[in-house]
Design a protein around this nucleic acid. Structure first.
Lengths: 156, 156
DNA sequence: TTAACTTTGACTAATATTGACTATTATTAT
DNA sequence: ATAATAATAGTCAATATTAGTCAAAGTTAA
């Protein structure tokens, strides 16, 4: 809220635009120049202030005509539960525990049967097929966390 | 979506024509002149935006009266659509091609928006977060293949 | 004083643009 | 017919134009 540092100022600038339209599209270097900072500071602001937990979706493209686009999305009611579950997942998780979490989501009507099956298919031992047990559990955790994060908000 | 670079503009131009007829036939040099770019840029646009993964067939002929013809095809009409796609995936696939395939599935009503987003989340570079580029592409292929196979019996 | 947060910049990655050179097909001249 | 020439499109690598990552250094607040 305060305008004490550049990151806060840039954050306020972007949010002010987002007050009027649901999305803002910028050229990173232009905004950096506008606020007299290095381009990577824009990434810092986005990574710390425009996260999915706060209801922002960010997309970007490099190369000529590149951009960074920030979109405000509507968060769903289940997000506290999702936070809890993401905490449970941690940085690694077994297939067995994954099944438990997915079943819980299904029972709570957070996802449909179809989604549940997709998630289980994507995270199964057979699919991941890594030799390294540890790596597999970590990867499963990342995939599951990412999927849970996507359940947070509603698409138009 | 973007109108920032020439490639996007040319893409939009061609797709607008394809909205009205199922195929478009151009003379490369004419389109290049129309958009004030070098002829090989047309090839770049076609190679990056009108791939088979996205549901486009491209044919061309050189010499006098030469042309480039782009045709929009429906994968759903293909009896073995899933097999075709799985073949395209192969044993490794980039995030870019994954996006193309998933978008095509969505366009052709093979999957819903929600499923599309889940699949993309599960296979993104950020989610997989492996150091090994090769391993990442292989893993992405396995996950995508697994999901595609899932559509097979999830379907009816 | 220390832990968290911010700022910076060197290096990396992705995407787009350009043009020289090559390949193919059609047309014309012999 | 055949060879030369013209009229196309294709390939590829160099360069340009963006954004991303990461860790070191600086700043602030508890």
């Amino acid at each position: 809220m305060q305008g004490q540092n550049i990151s806060d100022i840039i954050e306020a600038y972007l949010k002010q635009i987002l007050n009027e339209s649901t999305r803002v599209e910028i050229r990173r270097s232009e905004v950096a120049e506008l606020f007299n900072c290095v381009p990577s500071q824009i990434n810092y602001v986005i990574n710390t202030r425009f996260t999915i937990q706060r209801g922002y979706l960010v997309q970007s493209k490099r190369g000529g005509g590149g951009y960074i686009r920030i979109e405000k999305v509507k968060l769903l009611d289940d997000r506290d539960m999702l936070d809890t579950l993401i905490g449970l997942v941690g940085h690694q998780i077994s297939q067995r525990d994954t099944l438990a979490i997915v079943q819980k989501l299904y029972e709570d009507n957070a996802i449909e049967r179809r989604d549940a099956n997709l998630i289980l298919a994507a995270t199964s031992h057979q699919t991941l097929a890594l030799n390294d047990r540890q790596l597999e559990a970590e990867l499963r955790a990342r995939i599951l966390t990412s999927l849970l994060n996507h359940l947070r908000y509603e698409r138009e």
